[in-house]
Amino acid sequence: MLYCDAYLTPRSLADAFTAMAEYRGRYRLVAGATDTLPWARAGRAGDVAIPALIDVSAIPELRERRVDATRVRIGAATPMQRFLDDGDLARAMPVMARCAVWFADDQIRAAATVGGNLVNASPAADATPPLLAHDAQVELACAREGKITRRRMALGDFVRGPGKTALEADEILLAIECAALPGYGAEFEKVGHRRSLVIATVCLAAVVRLDAAHAIADLRLAVGGVGPVPCRLHESENFLRGGAATLARLEEAAHMTVGLVQSRTRHDYRRDVLHGFVVRGLASALRRAGGASPPVGELEASHA
């Protein structure tokens, strides 16, 4: 069980920093709390006593939502379910909607926040690959010398390793900003030991836009579960960008991921699945991006 002497729910950023200063070194930030409570149980951390839990989910800056044709800004305390239920957000971030349906279950998604998923920095965090595909930036805030200052960095720089991020002890993850990708075809592939409430062994986010000639105008691929941090598949992307979407080219792009898997456990399995996910995930995304997608038919024909 998780025990605390105080549970604080600051209503402003300033109040949050005041509470953090008061309990310096003796608090833990929570938002959805869906990871924190299960963490403090037998077999994991066991009973944990923390002087203060500071719940940041009521701070207005962490609940922001701005969506326009090119940019999206979402507060870190946005529940994952929002990416499914909010039509504007789902259109601007099609791969986040596909990811969200795989994320835990409907009820946990209603509470679990996108920021929480990022700061936990699990190698298999579901939300990280889609946000990497969106070239997401994170905005962090701290109060130093009585002044609230903010800084930004690329999500890829923010997540540093299993459980490690660039977040300083006195900082809060405020918001995530990224490119809107309306009209992109998207797919999120994930495999675990079942289909709900499951941690990914491998997950992959794919988004694609086709040009008028049905060549690949833009694509982004990101993977989780295969190394200490989720990452983009730049080599495969660069190879495919601007070219025709044929099965042979997808296979070649997938082959470029062979050396990427760093996980020691189930290494060969992850390598094989990643390879397959690149092909199949892209084929699905291509179909959603522009109707007739040659690779899909070829893929089906080649394995019929």
Partner: peptide
Amino acid sequence: ALMEDYRIENGRTTTPGLAKYILPTALD
């Protein structure tokens, strides 16, 4: 048949809760 597996290493379980001990859901 497909997913459940109570694991024990040197007498200690590595599947101490329902997050690790996987059960079928309505989807499966």
